[in-house]
Every structure is written in C-alpha cells, then in structure tokens.
Amino acid sequence: QTVQFNGLEYHFPNPEEAEKFAKKVAKELGGEVRVKDGRWQID
C-alpha cells in the first residue's frame, strides 16, 4: 500500500498502516486524504 504526499511515496505492508499514517499526516498538515488509483494521496 502506498501513501503519496509532497512528491514522496511511503510504502506500507498493509492497508491499515497506510490508512493510519495518511490520516495522521493529513491531520498534521491540515490536508485532505483521498484514494486515487489504489494509493492514498494527501493534498
């Protein structure tokens, strides 16, 4: 599972970890999490 933001990609072994990370980062950055092409993106 991949999380993308600021032009970087973070890879996680399972979707739960990816989701948790994506939501944490979005909260800290005040961004929005969305899934695109099977990847988590933070904008």
Rank of each mutant, 00 (worst) to 15 (best):
K20L: 10
G30N: 09
K23D: 08
L29A: 07
K20Y: 08
L29D: 04
N14P: 00
R34F: 12
V35D: 05
K27M: 12
V33F: 06
G31C: 15
F5R: 02
V35H: 11
E17H: 03
F5G: 01
N6Y: 06
I42S: 04
E28C: 15
Q41S: 07
F12N: 00
E9D: 10
D37S: 03
E9V: 13
D43E: 12
Y10D: 02
K24T: 10
E16G: 07
E19S: 04
R39G: 08
G38C: 14
G30L: 05
A18M: 01
F21K: 03
A22Y: 04
V25T: 06
Q1V: 12
K24Q: 13
A18P: 00
D37G: 07
Y10G: 02
V3K: 00
K23C: 14
A26M: 06
Y10F: 13
P13C: 15
K27H: 11
R34A: 08
A22V: 07
E16H: 09
K36W: 00
A22R: 04
A26Q: 07
T2N: 04
R34Q: 10
E9A: 06
V25K: 08
R34I: 13
D37N: 11
K27I: 10
Q1Y: 15
T2G: 02
T2E: 03
P15F: 11
E16Y: 10
L8S: 08
E9H: 07
G38I: 01
E17P: 00
I42T: 04
V25A: 06
R34H: 11
F5S: 02
Q41V: 15
G31D: 04
G7P: 00
E9G: 01
G7I: 01
H11T: 09
F21Q: 02
E19I: 05
W40F: 08
D43A: 10
A22I: 06
I42W: 05
D37P: 00
T2L: 09
F5D: 00
K20E: 13
I42K: 03
N6M: 12
V3M: 02
L8M: 12
K27N: 09
Q41T: 14
A22S: 02
F21N: 03
L29K: 05
L29V: 13
K27D: 09
F5P: 00
G30I: 03
E9T: 12
D43G: 08
K36Y: 01
L8Y: 12
N14F: 05
V25S: 02
A22G: 01
A18D: 02
V35S: 07
R39H: 11
G30R: 06
T2K: 07
K36N: 09
R34C: 15
V25W: 09
L29H: 13
F5H: 07
D37W: 00
L29G: 06
E9R: 05
V33E: 03
E16R: 08
K36V: 15
G38L: 03
F12T: 00
K27E: 12
W40M: 06
Q41A: 06
W40A: 04
F12S: 00
T2Q: 05
A22K: 03
G38E: 05
